[in-house]
Lab assay of single mutants.
Amino acid sequence: SPEVQIAILTEQINNLNEHLRVHKKDHHSRRGLLKMVGKRRRLLAYLRNKDVARYREIVEKLG
């Protein structure tokens, strides 16, 4: 489901952010981070168009 995919991506994004705080010059990982953020944004847009209630619920849960 989109909610699960968004939750997994959010966790991976948070982990990668911590990694990049330590390894500032790791541009390869930064590119992966940007791809993940874009994918999460697309999934959220899809969910917002399909079911606003589910969209609001996941945004509330994940912050």
Rank of each mutant, 00 (worst) to 15 (best):
59 V>D: 00
33 L>I: 05
60 E>H: 10
13 I>C: 02
26 D>E: 05
10 T>W: 04
47 L>Y: 01
35 K>G: 05
54 R>Q: 05
32 G>E: 15
7 A>L: 15
39 K>V: 10
37 V>R: 06
25 K>P: 05
20 L>E: 01
30 R>L: 13
29 S>F: 07
9 L>A: 01
12 Q>T: 05
26 D>S: 05
40 R>G: 01
38 G>T: 12
44 L>F: 03
3 E>F: 05
13 I>N: 01
32 G>A: 15
48 R>C: 09
33 L>Q: 02
49 N>P: 00
1 S>N: 10
56 R>D: 09
3 E>H: 03
20 L>Y: 04
62 L>D: 03
40 R>K: 03
11 E>Y: 08
1 S>T: 09
60 E>L: 11
19 H>I: 07
5 Q>S: 06
15 N>F: 13
4 V>M: 13
1 S>E: 08
27 H>T: 09
29 S>N: 06
31 R>I: 11
12 Q>P: 01
24 K>W: 10
25 K>N: 14
26 D>P: 04
42 R>S: 06
22 V>S: 12
24 K>M: 08
25 K>C: 13
52 V>T: 09
20 L>N: 02
60 E>I: 11
16 L>A: 05
59 V>P: 00
4 V>K: 11
6 I>R: 01
44 L>V: 02
16 L>V: 04
15 N>E: 12
21 R>S: 06
1 S>R: 07
56 R>K: 11
23 H>Y: 06
5 Q>A: 09
41 R>A: 12
19 H>F: 09
17 N>T: 14
5 Q>D: 07
56 R>H: 12
54 R>H: 05
42 R>P: 00
22 V>H: 13
32 G>S: 15
36 M>I: 08
35 K>T: 08
49 N>H: 11
25 K>V: 05
33 L>D: 01
16 L>P: 01
17 N>F: 15
16 L>Q: 02
18 E>N: 10
44 L>P: 00
48 R>T: 00
58 I>V: 09
50 K>E: 11
9 L>P: 00
30 R>H: 12
24 K>H: 10
37 V>L: 14
17 N>R: 15
54 R>Y: 04
32 G>L: 15
60 E>P: 02
14 N>R: 10
56 R>N: 14
20 L>S: 02
28 H>Q: 12
53 A>Y: 07
63 G>M: 15
59 V>M: 14
4 V>H: 13
21 R>D: 04
60 E>D: 07
58 I>G: 00
42 R>G: 04
11 E>W: 10
47 L>D: 00
53 A>R: 10
40 R>C: 07
50 K>Q: 13
22 V>Y: 11
11 E>C: 13
50 K>A: 11
20 L>D: 02
40 R>E: 01
62 L>A: 03
47 L>P: 00
10 T>D: 02
48 R>K: 13
37 V>D: 02
56 R>W: 15
10 T>S: 05
38 G>M: 15
12 Q>I: 13
7 A>W: 15
47 L>R: 00
10 T>V: 08
16 L>K: 02
45 A>L: 11
34 L>Y: 10
57 E>A: 13
24 K>V: 11
63 G>L: 15
59 V>W: 06
29 S>H: 12
7 A>Y: 14
24 K>T: 12
24 K>P: 15
54 R>E: 03
50 K>H: 14
41 R>T: 07
19 H>C: 09
18 E>F: 07
52 V>F: 15
5 Q>I: 12
23 H>R: 04
58 I>K: 00
44 L>C: 08
15 N>Y: 13
25 K>F: 11
41 R>Y: 09
11 E>N: 06
14 N>T: 06
15 N>P: 01
21 R>M: 07
62 L>Q: 02
36 M>W: 03
7 A>R: 09
28 H>A: 14
15 N>S: 12
49 N>Y: 09
7 A>M: 15
31 R>F: 08
29 S>G: 10
9 L>Y: 03
44 L>D: 00
23 H>M: 04
25 K>G: 13
58 I>W: 05
39 K>W: 08
60 E>V: 08
18 E>C: 12
45 A>D: 09
63 G>S: 12
54 R>P: 00
63 G>F: 15
8 I>P: 01
3 E>N: 03
13 I>F: 02
46 Y>D: 13
60 E>R: 12
40 R>P: 00
42 R>H: 05
11 E>G: 05
7 A>K: 07
19 H>W: 15
1 S>Q: 07
26 D>H: 11
41 R>E: 06
30 R>G: 03
1 S>V: 06
35 K>V: 12
35 K>R: 11
